[in-house]
Amino acid sequence: MPTHVELCRLAEFFDPYGRAMANLRKGEIVMARKGKQITIAVLMGAALAASASVSGSAYAQSHHSIAYAKATKSSSTVTFPLTVTDEAGNKVTISHRPVRIASVTEGTDEILSALVPIKDLVLVTTYGKQPAYSFVASKLKGIRGISSATAEGIIAARPDLVFLASYTTPGVVNQIRQAGIPVYELTDFNSISQIEQNILNVGLVVGKEPKARGIVAGMKQRLRLIAKAATSGRKPTVMYYASPNYVAGKNTTMNSVILAAGGRNAAAAVNGWQPETAEAVVKQNPQILLFSQSDAKIAEAMLHSPKYSTVAAIKDHRVFLLPDRDTGTVSQYIVDSVATVAKDIGTLKK
């Protein structure tokens, strides 16, 4: 059973990345005005290296440790020009610390909002600007939004670095590269550990590696507290169901969230996002059913359909709607999603 102190500490983490991160951001802005960015980077690096080493040891045995170890090997200060290999395996050379960044994935919208000054973002996704889908919508007001990755739309924002996802049309990526703009491709968003790695990778190329490490350390600490609180009882079987009949199997962000929240994925036999028959749902018999808010009608229909009348979650009315932004996030806010799910599935007290 988690102690009262532990639960209180958990409550503190409700405000993501808490006061410590806010102070860091404030400090950076002040120092930037004085034109001493390198000094502050070293100072922050030293401050955060301490916290990272503490939380890093606690995670040595977890599956996150591999990704984490990879990141800690690199130096804490980055000098430009910088050449890195992106997640798609392409060499990317960035001549100076980027100050006109185009973020063309929802994940990087949220990650970059925490890493760089907002004025350094020249393009974000339209979803990143919608409060229903994004944790940082209010921050991104006034920044140009793009709904699909078109080469011209991206080049028109005159960025000095573009973040794209691997599902962007290869032709578009080539056209942007031909325009002489460095493109960093992210390839995997299907687990918390990969999201953490994405944050570190993004942090490296925007010259904010220590800050990125701080964010990841904060995530790990919150996840550790949730895991500790959740180890007490039996792990319930949980299914995330999406319209029209898709379930989140293994290798999905939602699978990772369910596991981190202390549940077992009832659809673990399925790989990725797959449509599933009503009969398979009856067989997998989840104790808890999770839906996105926008699928409320489907949840309602399932509750009243005779097909699902024997499913434990339906019988016990343990059906929960998650905010859309919780189910879609692939950034540090995934921890908020874990906390929400942990409370819904009862591993964490509300």
Partner: peptide
């Protein structure tokens, strides 16, 4: 229903 069961 059966080719990739439980996926449809």
């Amino acid at each position: 229903r059966m080719a990739l069961s439980p996926t449809e």
